[in-house]
């Protein structure tokens, strides 16, 4: 299989809107991916902190694909590797993954520290690849994104940063009512987004399986302190 290369149109779409969806991209592997996802959680008691997932709160394992040779090899897959290479260059860095059983809603947020302390100003580019292992739509836990919200420093993006968490008071709408695109997903689909992009999810069952792969470009020497910040941030997951 040839290495996937994003088209100029796809790259411009990502630059403009902050996300891309690849329907069915990993359909040929998804059955084994799901089996191995379950195996990793089984190795950890079935849920969070060595305990079974009880459906009351999100279970999260970090790092995730690192713990399973099949899932780790997704980094070698010419489609996965090709997407990250297209976005970040041949020598991009893999910087962690998380495996999840999601429960309930996740409010609007970016995965980037907007203050600049963690990743600088403007924040360094990170892309998240998300694989949803159950069918989800806009009301059952699919990722909702606000196109263009990744554009740090842009007035629209800055207004969202200031207002989204208080949408009821400031705009008279709940989080679920914020205008957004719902990225309906089926197993085998691949979602990729700029981590600045404002995203959320609403509704769904109490055991929604999803895992991510996170990458950024190779760090220049002067930016290594930001790399050390990223690594420090893993500590909160590793106290098991």
């Amino acid at each position: 299989m040839d290495k996937l290369q994003l088209t100029p149109q796809q790259l411009t779409f990502m630059d403009t809107f902050g996300y891309l969806v690849f329907p069915g991209l990993l359909r040929d592997k998804i059955a084994t991916i799901i089996d191995e996802f379950e195996n990793v959680f089984a190795m950890h008691g079935g849920g969070h902190d060595g305990k079974p997932h009880d459906g009351t709160a999100r279970s999260c394992l970090v790092p995730f694909i690192d713990q399973n040779s099949y899932l780790a090899a997704l980094l070698d897959d010419p489609r996965v590797d090709g997407i990250f290479t297209s976005l970040l260059g041949e020598n991009y860095n893999y910087l962690g993954s998380d495996g999840n059983f999601y429960v309930g809603n996740t409010g609007w947020h970016s995965d980037t520290d907007w203050s600049g302390k963690m990743r600088g100003k403007p924040p360094r580019l990170f892309y998240k690849m998300a694989l949803y292992l159950d069918p989800v739509d806009g009301n059952t836990g699919a990722l909702r994104v606000i196109p263009g919200s990744h554009r740090y420093g842009d007035r629209f993006a800055e207004d969202l940063q200031q207002r989204l968490r208080n949408s009821a008071e400031l705009m008279g709408i709940s989080g679920a009512e914020v205008p957004a695109i719902a990225l309906t997903s089926n197993p085998g689909d691949v979602v990729v987004f700029n981590q600045n992009t404002k995203h959320s999810s609403w509704g769904g069952n109490t055991r929604r399986r999803m895992f991510t792969i996170n990458c950024t470009a190779h760090y220049a020497e002067e930016d290594v302190p930001y790399l050390r910040n990223e690594i420090s941030a893993f500590a909160r997951f590793w106290i098991e």
């Binding site: 070698d76 990250f84 041949e90 860095n93 893999y94 910087l95 190779h218 790399l227 690594i231």
Partner: peptide
């Protein structure tokens, strides 16, 4: 090839 993406971290 994979190590290229792991070595710096």
């Amino acid at each position: 090839q994979r190590m290229v993406h792991l070595e710096q971290p």
